[in-house]
Amino acid sequence: MTTIALTHVLILASILFVIGFVGVIVRKNTLFMLMSLEVMLNAVGVAFIGAGSAWQQADGQVMFILILTLAAAEVAVGLALLINMQRRYRSLDIDILARMRG
């Protein structure tokens, strides 16, 4: 039985991260942006777990749990804001929230 190289895990994490990043930049729908953010957070989780596994330490998983809590809180707040936005603007387009231009 062969073993997985750490570099491959990291490359997988990078690819997932970049896909999420594309989603954040490209999508106008705020809901999709949130989902893309989940993908990015998940990618970071992959990197942590991989590193923890490579060094045989549990810290990686601890970090993953912390990321999990962060993601949960973020999604709760983000969705609440989206509900608010939908009520006010009847739309989820992030570009209409461009009032803080310089």
Binding site: F21, V24, I25, V26, R27, K28, M33, I94, D95, L97, A98, R99, M100, R101, G102
Partner: peptide, 18 residues
């Protein structure tokens, strides 16, 4: 230039971070 960069668009900011 800087004023134009502050266009209030979140996606633009994310891209600049990228």
């Amino acid at each position: 230039v800087l004023s134009a960069s502050q266009n209030g668009s979140l996606r633009w900011y994310a891209a600049v971070i990228g």
